[in-house]
Deep mutational scan, measured.
Amino acid sequence: GIPATNLSRVAGLEKQLAIELKVKQGAENMIQTYSNGSTKDRKLLLTAQQMLQDSKTKIDIIRMQLRRALQ
Rank of each mutant, 00 (worst) to 15 (best):
D54N: 09
I61Q: 09
N36M: 06
Q32W: 10
L70I: 07
Y34N: 02
E14K: 15
E20P: 00
Q32D: 08
E20D: 01
R63M: 13
Q16M: 13
Q65Y: 06
D60A: 15
V23D: 01
I62M: 02
N36C: 15
A27V: 13
K56E: 10
I59Y: 01
A27W: 15
Q49C: 15
P3Y: 03
D54R: 13
Q49K: 07
A69F: 06
D60W: 14
L17I: 02
L13C: 03
K40F: 13
K24R: 07
I59H: 00
D54V: 13
L13R: 00
I2C: 15
L46C: 11
G37D: 10
L44R: 07
T47N: 12
I31W: 02
S38I: 11
V10P: 01
K58A: 05
L45E: 02
Q50F: 04
Q32T: 07
M30E: 03
P3M: 06
S38P: 08
R9E: 13
A27Q: 02
E14Y: 15
S55C: 13
N36G: 06
D41L: 03
T57W: 08
Q50A: 10
N36V: 06
L44Y: 05
G12L: 15
V23G: 02
S8W: 04
D54P: 00
N6R: 10
Q16E: 07
L44H: 05
Q53R: 13
K22I: 08
K40Y: 13
K15W: 07
K24Q: 06
K43T: 11
M51S: 04
E20R: 02
T33E: 15
K24W: 06
N6G: 10
T47H: 13
Q50N: 06
K24C: 13
G1E: 11
L70K: 11
K40I: 10
K22Y: 04
E20G: 01
M30K: 04
A27Y: 12
G37P: 08
L66C: 02
E28L: 14
L52G: 01
S38N: 09
A4T: 10
E28N: 03
V10Y: 05
S38E: 13
M64G: 07
L13D: 00
V10W: 02
S8L: 09
N29R: 12
P3G: 10
L70S: 05
K58E: 02
R68V: 13
M30N: 03
G1C: 15
L46W: 06
E28S: 02
D41C: 08
G37S: 09
L7Y: 03
K22D: 04
M64S: 08
R67T: 07
Q16K: 09
L13I: 02
Q49M: 11
A18T: 04
I62W: 01
E14H: 12
Q50G: 03
A4D: 12
I2G: 09
S35E: 10
K24G: 01
A4N: 13
L45Y: 04
T33Q: 15
T47A: 14
T33Y: 14
L52E: 01
Q65R: 06
Q49V: 13
